[in-house]
Design a protein around this nucleic acid. Sequence first.
DNA 1: TTCCTAAGAATGTGATCACAAAAAGAACGG
DNA 2: CCGTTCTTTTTGTGATCACATTCTTAGGAA
Lengths: 230, 230
Amino acid sequence: MKSLVLPGLDRPEGMTTHDYAFARLRQAIMVGAFRPGTSVTIRGLADALESSPTPVREALRQLTSIGALQFLENRRIVVPRITPARFEELISLRIALESHAARRAVAHLSDRQIDRIVTLDDAIEAAILAGQKAQALIANQQFHRQIYTANPDQVAMPLIESLWLQLGPILGIAMEHVTEFYVIDRHREAIEALRRRDEDAVAQAIAADIREGIGGFDQQAIGKLLALAG
Amino acid sequence: MKSLVLPGLDRPEGMTTHDYAFARLRQAIMVGAFRPGTSVTIRGLADALESSPTPVREALRQLTSIGALQFLENRRIVVPRITPARFEELISLRIALESHAARRAVAHLSDRQIDRIVTLDDAIEAAILAGQKAQALIANQQFHRQIYTANPDQVAMPLIESLWLQLGPILGIAMEHVTEFYVIDRHREAIEALRRRDEDAVAQAIAADIREGIGGFDQQAIGKLLALAG
DNA sequence: TTCCTAAGAATGTGATCACAAAAAGAACGG
DNA sequence: CCGTTCTTTTTGTGATCACATTCTTAGGAA
């Protein structure tokens, strides 16, 4: 049985079943395809991915290591719930980590790379205008990732993505309830700062971008949703 | 065959084979029992832990998710090598993350908890005086963990431990070559700041503690070792 | 000696199965 | 109608096995 819920993701040939399952589930969680508190089963996902329990269990175990899932005491596997306090911690950590990563990326960014970042920002706007929420979210993540990974020795990206994964489920709820996008574009501000190679300004723009709108969503609205979903 | 290399770790009854394998391997890497570049095999570890490939493979996969191990393209599993640049990134991230975590823990610390932190600091000194390097390392980690986890909603600890794991192997090398401990005790400074509930001072003391000596080791010495071990 | 090739060994991968624990449902008694 | 107990089903766990890939090593040719 092939799942209709999991966002599609082509499987490059040569990729192991485990890697495919991991990538697929990870992507699904990151874009909010699972709601907080949802429970998943190994066999169920194995069927959905048309494989067997072994590689799926490995993928699920990996996802717990990065906070995307949770193995409960009763051996149930669930998408973690988020309290308002935990949400606030995650956001403040995002700000700390990502402004740090952005600052340390500035020196490594070539003009050509900055041009590519601008292209990604355009893609975000295009997705928003087209009403493709999930696509806008993915493009926004790519925008951030492109900046941080310019630093070749960077080690923060996996940690940042762990935070994105933990915030994913709540974004999924937000996407259902928010009809209007708040495009408070700190991205242009960040890009200008990148062009000037102004580390402080870049860090500040990224911090503001995170604080003011989580990937285009209004934070207050999410706060209210948390009271319900927590 | 039971391994003599892996640090012992009692297996509480009811703990699954997988959890035991994960905890055991994680602890081993964290205290530097494996050198950078070391390759491990699933069957080998399964024998050492007197179990089978399945739970061990799951544990190894989890360890790769947090940067403690690496699955190479050729399907070999190795302890990642660390370049001087990567080392510097890890340290700067530790400073960013841990001073952030410390700052946000201050408000939650009771006087009783601070007393317990002092006890842990005494344990570090005792271990150093007794020449028990690994024990001193563990006690030092407990000291830091005790502070950060005082914040009940904290989400940074797993990320911080990921950094500790990535630094573990290099600490293992350092422990072999460094005969003298440099006890630059910023811990007392941190404790005093905690007592005053002075967030800035706490963050500063933690940052200085990390910068000046990684768990009691001289950083410059590690830098030199990296040139050889990278 | 050096390089290349081929046979054998070692290793990761993934499906399967038996088992135990937990959850869900059915039957019964108050 | 509600709660309890027993049965059935579901589900995670871990050992095992077959397969494909990779590594190792032995042998031979230049």
